[in-house]
Design a protein around this nucleic acid. Structure first.
Length: 554
RNA sequence: GCGCUCGUAGCUCAGCUGGAUAGAGCAGUGGACUUCUAAUCCACCGGUCGCAGGUUCGAGUCCUGCCGGGCGCGCCA
């Protein structure tokens, strides 16, 4: 019995009560009933507060309504007990046989367990990372790489049509500084005051010079152009390589420059003008964003005639919508949260609906700490803590996990000493260890020549508390995947896997799966093997959605 | 000054969008390996959920005001 099935059972019970006239509901019978897992074991396997919620509609005290439901449930399949408690909670105990069916369902579903089609037909564009090609990706920007990628995996698992997109900012003053810095490094000169610093510049500069002998003899302007084209390209290739090593690959890279070159910017402004949301003042062109909740209106074309940064964003958003995306999601760092208001206002200025067509997610900052002292992270400070550093120190799995395990609402401190030296404390190992243990049991069972199958599985044999706990944990998986998608919070999946790993380790401690010594395999051994297979399935799928491997051995 | 955001155990963090006696890991103390991976398990210790009001059957969760940390507030990108 899954929570969904239990919800349907409860709806059935309510329907039956209303049809027989025992209960009259003003608003009709709800289409689903929320079922939760009580924190306290004394409150049953599952609990619902539906009687408290429907009390007014039914014009009955909560406990009376709950009592009627409890009586109704006594005849329902798979229900071992239903008790009214407290102000009107209904605590439900599921029979072992019904609970055990979860294992069979999971094994039969295999890799599709936890997936669904509830987002089928949705076209979603996820833009994340989008670091400027002026240096390696640092950890703060990189936070969204595993998080955004996990979100993409989860949306895809729920049937959505997902595009991962990277916005390549190759058009502004920062690029200009980057080029001048490269040129200076190539010539062995001091970098410009406002330039970038770091060894990576030397590598890039060397490569540009190697590819273009004589470039250093060119006049400044021409040399700078060579460095612009080649340097940016090399830097960008390096960023792509880093992300690829990190298990994050994008479907579309959009270059800001092309939005300007193709006339997309003018078209977007024209469209906004038609909507009556553009005006001119002080020699500049403005967008009416204040009308849509922004602090003030924004300049889109400066009085010099040069487009402001937001101009490209207008074109970019329109471009995404014209490419057919229903939902455009942009993931930014907290240092850009001031930008959210104008983006949502822009969305509305186009006649779209904020939060429905455009969503802006803000990830709080990542601080890197070494020996209790903060490590400077700004690219131009020369002391860069990059995603490459993190991967080198922790490996891809742990590095991804370290960034995806925390809510993006919180700023996090990553203590390098801790994460590098005491990596055994990393929760990812706890989860992966469970996964490896599961694989090991299945491997040993096969070596022992034990056969088990979903077809001859007796679910009622899984009657131990630890087995019930594990089954209920596994039954939660689809709800967790759904919640990750709805709330855009992959960290929930990581936490779920940690809790489920704990539940499994406890089961393993108490419930022997394989026969001991010369013992003949029994139906209980085979039933537990099916449970182990079901558990392994959840870990493989769950870790896969996080982009973390589920090792067979450790 | 204005805006966004966070504040939960000594430390790092969860808390399923309002449910029952607030949970994990680490740290600390004490236990469990001749048998499926001890990277594990068990027990104990640890809390005025920043503070004060409000909303209601019920608030860590929602509202208001303070306090404290982070980040923003350009015809920069």
């Amino acid at each position: 019995m899954t929570p969904e099935e239990l919800s349907r059972t409860l709806v059935g019970a309510l329907t039956s009560l209303t049809e027989r006239g025992v209960v009259a509901l003003d608003g009709g019978v709800p289409s689903s009933v929320t079922v939760e897992r009580p924190k306290n074991k004394a409150h049953g396997d599952y609990a619902t507060n539906i009687a408290l919620q429907l009390s007014k509609q039914a014009s009955l005290p909560p406990r009376v309504l709950a009592d009627a439901l409890a009586k109704e449930l006594q005849h329902a399949d798979g229900i071992a007990a239903a008790d009214v408690a407290g102000p009107g909670f209904l605590n439900i105990t599921v029979s072992a046989a019904a609970q055990g069916e979860v294992a069979r369902a999971i094994v039969e579903a295999g890799a599709t367990y936890g997936t669904s089609t509830r987002l089928a037909g949705n076209r979603i564009n996820l833009e994340f990372v989008s670091a400027n090609p002026t240096g390696p990706i640092h950890i703060g920007t990189g936070r969204w790489a595993p998080v955004g990628d996990s979100l993409a995996r989860v949306f895809t698992a729920l049937g959505a049509d997902v595009t991962r997109e990277y916005y390549f900012n190759d058009h502004g003053a920062q690029i200009d500084r980057f080029c001048r810095s490269l040129l200076a490094v190539a010539r062995g000169q001091e970098p410009p005051e406002d330039g970038y610093v770091g060894n990576y510049l030397v590598d890039i500069a060397d490569q540009v010079v190697a590819g273009h002998p004589g470039v250093l003899e060119l006049p400044d302007d021409e040399a700078k152009e060579v460095f612009r084209h080649q340097g940016v390209e090399l830097m960008f290739a390096d960023i792509k390589r880093t992300l690829h090593d990190f298990g994050v690959d994008f479907d579309v890279y959009t270059h800001q420059q092309t939005l300007h070159d193709s006339g997309a910017v003018e078209r977007a402004i024209d469209r906004l003008r038609e909507m009556g949301n553009v005006y001119e003042a002080d020699g500049a062109v403005w967008l009416r964003t204040q009308k849509y909740g922004d602090d003030k209106d924004r300049v889109i074309i400066r009085s010099t005639g040069a487009p402001a940064y937001i101009a490209a964003d207008l074109a970019y958003y329109l471009d995404k919508r014209e490419r057919g995306f229903d939902l455009v999601v942009i993931m930014l760092g907290a240092d850009h949260h001031g930008y959210v208001g104008r983006l949502l206002a822009m969305c509305q200025a186009f006649g779209d609906t904020p939060h429905e067509n455009l969503e802006v997610l803000i990830g709080q900052m990542v601080n890197v700490v070494r020996d209790g002292k903060p490590v400077r992270m700004a690219k131009r400070a020369g002391s860069v803590v990059t995603i490459d550093d993190l991967i080198e120190a922790l490996g891809v799995d742990a590095a991804r996990y370290a960034l995806v395990r925390y809510s993006t609402d919180s700023n996090i401190d990553i203590d390098l000493a801790l994460w590098t030296s005491a990596s055994n404390d990393n929760p990812v190992y706890y989860v992966q260890y469970a996964s490896a243990r599961l694989a090991s049991i299945l491997r040993n069972a096969t070596e022992l020549g034990i056969a088990w199958s979903a077809a001859d599985f007796d679910p009622s044999l899984l009657a131990d508390d630890r087995e019930g706990d594990l089954l209920r944990a596994l039954a939660e998986f689809p709800r967790v995947v759904s919640a990750v998608a709805d709330l855009r919070q992959p960290h929930r999946l990581a936490r779920y896997l940690e809790a489920t790993a704990s539940t499994f380790h406890k089961f393993y401690d108490v419930c022997r799966v394989l026969p001991l010594g010369d013992e003949e395999p029994t139906d209980l051994h085979r039933a537990r093997l099916l449970l182990v297979e079901a558990t392994r399935t959840v870990f493989v799928t769950g870790l896969g959605l996080l982009g973390v491997s589920a090792p067979e051995r450790m």
